[in-house]
Structure formats: structure tokens, C-alpha cells
Computed example of a mutant assay.
Amino acid sequence: MPTSADVARLAGVSRATVSYVLNNATAVRISEPTRQRVQEAADELGYVPHAAARSLRAGHSRMVLMPTPTMPMGALYSHVFNELQWALRRLDYTVVQFGSLGMSGDEAARAWAELRPVAVLAPGDGTLTPRGVHVLKRSGAKAVVTLGPQRVEGAHALLMDQRAVGRCAGAHLLDRGRTRIGVVVPREPGYETFSAPRLAGLRAATETRADARVVPLELGYDEPSAAELVARWRQLGLDSVFAYNDEYAMLLLRALQDAGVDVPGETAVMGADDLLLGRLLRPRLSTVRMELPSGQRLAELVDRAVRDPAGAPEVHPLLGTEAVPREST
């Protein structure tokens, strides 16, 4: 196994220089030719720094732990998380995704803490508790940040108000003269953290209208479930539907068309997330577009929290919404 001493001999530099170059140290100025010579020597020998040893020397790691959420996040959120990982890497953090499925509460926090991350970016889905935040900080985490519709005491929070999504959809459908509104709630477990506030937001948008009616509709993400729901569609007496997201909206829209239900004549259909595929449908899918922060901005928030671990937990509201009217409504 090659060592930093081997790299130093091959490059003709000191071990300290090798450490500065391969750890991207900014405190010491290294010329570009020297930096390139060290990198070429490391590549030739197949040497990489030992992350655990580096963490011991520094007193902390550069690992940002991102536990997997308990629910599928969908294409929109996956894009944001991918951007975030790239941005953190450019800030010299190592991003590690932790498979937390099957864990909950303090059990999950203890498992994360075993890896001694410098920061944890956890989904705000109820998995992390205030006690879990305490466990993580006692283990050396300088920043604990939640991303989702709920905040946790002791942690920084990047709040995404999912009620705003439902309010936006409800206002749009009411403006279109629709008053008998179905709301698709995913049948799959784990979605309640997002789907329940979206339903509540739509109810809030319609509460001043005496003629408005809101009907929750459970739907599994498969064609038989959509066909089963549509088979009793006309009995429900609905003139519109807001689906949990564009994917569920597209699934339902296809089933409605297969059953001969005119969209939007009999039933207006609206989704959320503004996915490209929704614009390719006929009729094109109306949706709620969410103004999410860039991955770079989120990474900078994490970095600031790491640099100031004694600072009071901050709450950042990060979600704006906009109705995007298209042919389906």
C-alpha cells in the first residue's frame, strides 16, 4: 500500500507538501508545478489520503451525512439533492448517503453519529428528534440541518411549507370555477409528511367558499389503483382534482382518458413540481411550480453552520409557489 512518504520521494518534495496538496489546504501557498508533480506521483502510485487519519489529525471530519429519506422524494427533489452534493464537494466536503430505511428516531441518530460526520443534512420527515440532535452534537457534528416541512429543536431548518403548494392549487382551481375538488393522497407509506400539509393548504384555500367541497382520494402509484379510482369517478361528482405531484397527476389523467372522462371538460387535473414530462402530455398538465433554492445556496448554508457551530439554530423558509396554467385545467 503506497504511503505519503512514497509520494514525497517520487515527487521530490516533503511529506508536508504532499499533505497540503492532496488535502487541498489553503493556508499554505503551493506553486502550480509542484502541485501538479505531487498529483502525478500520487496517481502513478495509486495513493489516496486516509480519511480517518486526516480526521484524527484535524479533530473532525469533512463528512456531510445525508440520510436517505423515508419516502421517495420525486424527480424535483432528487435534482436539488444532486446539485447540493456537487456544491458540497466543491467546498471540500465528502458527502455520504446513509441508508436509514427501517430506522427511526434516536436509533437513526445514533447510527449516524457512529460515523462522526461534521454535519448532518437530514430530511425533515419526523425521523430526527431533539434528543437525536443532542446525540449528534455530542458526537462532534458541528451542524445539524433539516430539510423539509418540519423543524426540529436544536437544528437549523430549511423549511419547505407544503401547505403553500395546496393553497396555490386550490386558488387556481377556484379561479377556474371549479368547486368540487378531489385531492389525491398517495397510498404508499411515508408520504404523509408532505401530502397532509398539501391537503390542509387546499382546504384552507377553499374555506371561505360555502359552495366548495374537498374530497381526499387515496391512490397507489400503479395503473390498477388508478383504474379502480376512475371506475367510480362520476359517482364522486367532482369537477376537478389536485394530485400530490405531477407523477400521480399523469397516472390519473391517463386513467381518466382511458375511461372516457373528458379533461378538462368534465374534470380539471392539476399536479405539482412542473416536470418536463407534464408539458409533453395532451392535454398539457397544469401544475404548481415550486421555487426551490439552488444546491449551491444550500451548500453555503451548511458550510456557514459548520463554521459557526455555537450560533443559534436558524430557520430559513425556502419555498415559493406559482400556479402554471395549461390545458388540463
Results as ranks from 00 to 15, higher is better:
residue 20 Y to H: 15
residue 308 D to L: 05
residue 164 A to W: 03
residue 115 L to N: 03
residue 239 D to P: 12
residue 48 V to L: 10
residue 283 P to F: 06
residue 173 L to A: 13
residue 158 L to N: 01
residue 222 D to G: 11
residue 233 W to K: 14
residue 84 L to S: 00
residue 295 G to L: 06
residue 135 V to H: 08
residue 8 A to M: 15
residue 21 V to G: 13
residue 254 R to I: 04
residue 238 L to F: 15
residue 270 M to V: 15
residue 29 R to G: 01
residue 204 A to W: 04
residue 286 S to Q: 10
residue 179 T to M: 15
residue 210 A to P: 05
residue 222 D to Q: 09
residue 149 P to E: 05
residue 205 A to C: 14
residue 20 Y to R: 11
residue 325 P to I: 09
residue 284 R to D: 04
residue 189 P to D: 13
residue 193 T to D: 00
residue 325 P to G: 09
residue 92 D to F: 12
residue 230 V to W: 08
residue 18 V to K: 10
residue 148 G to R: 05
residue 49 P to R: 13
residue 206 T to K: 11
residue 11 A to Y: 10
residue 117 P to L: 02
residue 87 A to P: 05
residue 270 M to P: 04
residue 134 H to Y: 04
residue 12 G to F: 07
residue 8 A to C: 13
residue 8 A to F: 14
residue 237 G to T: 12
residue 76 L to W: 01
residue 32 E to P: 05
residue 147 L to W: 04
residue 190 G to Q: 00
residue 227 A to R: 14
residue 268 A to D: 10
residue 90 R to L: 12
residue 38 V to A: 12
residue 122 A to M: 05
residue 291 E to Y: 07
residue 80 V to R: 00
residue 223 E to N: 03
residue 121 L to C: 09
residue 143 A to Q: 01
residue 64 V to Y: 02
residue 71 M to E: 06
residue 317 P to N: 05
residue 22 L to W: 06
residue 42 A to E: 12
residue 162 Q to F: 08
residue 46 G to P: 12
residue 61 S to P: 06
residue 58 A to F: 06
residue 195 S to D: 08
residue 92 D to E: 14
residue 72 P to R: 06
residue 144 V to Q: 01
residue 75 A to S: 03
residue 324 V to S: 00
residue 250 M to P: 07
residue 196 A to N: 02
residue 247 E to W: 05
residue 105 G to Y: 03
residue 12 G to R: 09
residue 110 R to P: 01
residue 241 V to A: 15
residue 36 Q to L: 14
residue 155 A to I: 05
residue 221 Y to E: 09
residue 213 R to D: 10
residue 173 L to G: 09
residue 128 L to C: 07
residue 226 A to V: 13
residue 308 D to K: 06
residue 120 V to F: 03
residue 260 G to R: 11
residue 197 P to K: 07
residue 72 P to A: 00
residue 70 T to N: 00
residue 5 A to S: 14
residue 64 V to I: 13
residue 125 D to S: 08
residue 309 P to Q: 05
residue 186 P to G: 07
